[in-house]
Nucleic acid binder design. Structure first.
Lengths: 114, 114
DNA sequence: CACAATTCCTACTTTTTGGTAACTATGCCA
DNA sequence: TGGCATAGTTACCAAAAAGTAGGAATTGTG
């Protein structure tokens, strides 16, 4: 019984959703994934996601960095330059995200309720 | 430019996350998917997810039903019996969710921050 | 000297989400 | 008569998430 519970609370979906199921994480990962250079600066990401506030973008990036999905490289220049890219772990997540995207493209029309 | 924006806001990740990225949806879908009979009653799901309140489970199921991912069958008995199962659209989403699960099993250890 | 550029951070407020507990309806069973 | 069971709903409250607006830091440029 304790086993079942432990297993349940260790459920990978829970973990994934609780960590990356927020409003912006997957979007940021996808932006990094689809960028030509695989590297984006803070303001470049922000321009790609205009409706994400600076605060939320900063928070999201910090979370992704702490989760080791995104690498953050700071260049000690003025004005500051900070570059973000996917780590190997981050890259390994992309097929799963792309599976969601593919599903969305194919099936979302069946889902829309109006 | 308007095209880019429209495309951005129509982004499948956004749609998927905004609809199923909540705390319980994917978990409910997975419970239905992995049940022996492919059919579960309200309280059976609730017993599988003890930390989801009745209110949230009810709300989640309603959302999934309105999104046509879950079928709800009511039997006019006393006490009431209501059975939930995945629709074809719901089943079509499972491979993508399983991809997330597989990723979680393989890579979550690299993510944990402590 | 004022200002621009970049990447944040902080305080404050609003919105959304989730939890608790009580209530409903109905018929069966003791 | 008085619980019990099922599948919810509702009102109320707390917590979390997110938006807004402003500031800090630095240094080159006009």
């Amino acid at each position: 019984m304790a086993d079942i519970k432990a297993q349940y609370f260790a459920c990978p979906i829970r973990q994934v959703v609780s960590r990356f199921g927020d409003k912006w994480s997957m979007l940021v990962l996808y932006m990094l994934h689809t960028s030509d250079t695989d590297i984006l600066r803070f303001n470049e990401i922000h321009r790609l996601m205009t409706d994400c506030s600076q605060k939320m973008l900063s928070q999201t990036l910090k979370n992704l960095e702490q989760s080791h999905l995104v690498h953050r490289e700071v260049y000690p220049e003025v004005p500051p330059r900070v570059e973000y890219s996917l780590t190997d772990t981050g890259k390994s997540l992309m097929p799963a995200i792309e599976a969601l995207i593919t599903w969305g493209k194919e099936h979302f029309k069946e889902v829309v309720t109006d």
